[in-house]
Amino acid sequence: MSSGIFSLTLATALGSGLVGGMFFAFSTFVMPALGALPASQGIAAMQSINVKVINAWFMTAFLGTAGTSVAAIVVTTVNWGSAYAPYLLAGAGLYLVGVIGVTMLANVPRNDALAAAEPTASRSADQWRRYLIEWTNWNTVRTIAPLVAAALEIGALHVA
C-alpha cells in the first residue's frame, strides 16, 4: 500500500468513525433527551440543529468522507488484485449507501417537513412524535453503516 493509499484509507476510516459516532450520539441520547422536552421546545431545538449542522466542520467529515469513499472505490478497481481491495471497496460502498443514501432518502425529507412545522401548533406535536421514531430509526441505520465501514477500512490497512 502506497503512502497515498494509506492516507486515503485512514482519512476514510476516520471520517466514517466521526460521522458514525456523531449519529450514535443522536440515536442514544440527543433524540431521547429532545423527546423528553415539551414538544414545542423539542421541535425548536431540532429545527435549530438541522439549520446549524450545515457548517464547514460537519460538511468536511460528512461530504469529505463521501469524496474519499469515491476515490477509494476508484483505487480498488485499479488495484483489484491487492489484498486490501475487497475491504476498502466494501467500506467505501457502505458509507455511500448507508450514510449518504440513507440521509438523502430518509432523514433530509423528514427534516424538510419538520422545518415547515410551527413549533407551538398542536398538529406539530403529532408530526414531532412520528419524527422522533422514524428519523431516529433511520439515524440508527446510518450509525451502524459507517462504524462497520470504519472497521472494514481498518481491516484494509491491516491486510495491506
Binding site: G20, K52, F58
Partner: peptide, 24 residues
Amino acid sequence: VVLTGLLAGLYYGFAVSVMPALHR
C-alpha cells in the same frame, strides 16, 4: 479503533452540531 472513533465522533457531534444549535 472503532470504539475510539465512536467516542471521537460522539464528542465531535456535540462540537459541530448539538452545542452550536443550543447556543442559538
